[in-house]
Amino acid sequence: MAFFDSLKRLFGGAGQNGRSGDATSPVTGGSPTASGSTDEAAVAMIPCEEASARLFEYLDGELEDVSEEEVRRHLEVCEACYPRVQFEKHFLEALRRSQDGGRASESLRARVLQSLAGDEGLD
């Protein structure tokens, strides 16, 4: 029992990236209390649709503008958007992983270097 308790404590307490356990209550428009550095406040700043419309820009590291910080914060902490973020991440990881494929053959490499050397002396 103690084992399970400690497990529970581990998963309940240690960094779930700010996502709380009960997935049934994504934060809606409610009233973000106080001057909101909380996750709830971040989520409430903009609607999910608006944030997820920028999801690719977020994952591509193309959210540069300071004003887009809200989008980033939302996607980092929103429970409702979380599966979607993971979904696109797994997709992009698969593409990146597949990249290893083509390599220039040794004969091509030699051919190119030779043609450069012939063009002007490249050592």
Binding site: P83, Q86, F87, E88, K89, H90, F91, E93, A94, R97, S98, D100, G101
Partner: peptide, 10 residues
Amino acid sequence: EGEFFRSIVD
């Protein structure tokens, strides 16, 4: 969460 993407071969 799209775990299936991980199973797809290059």
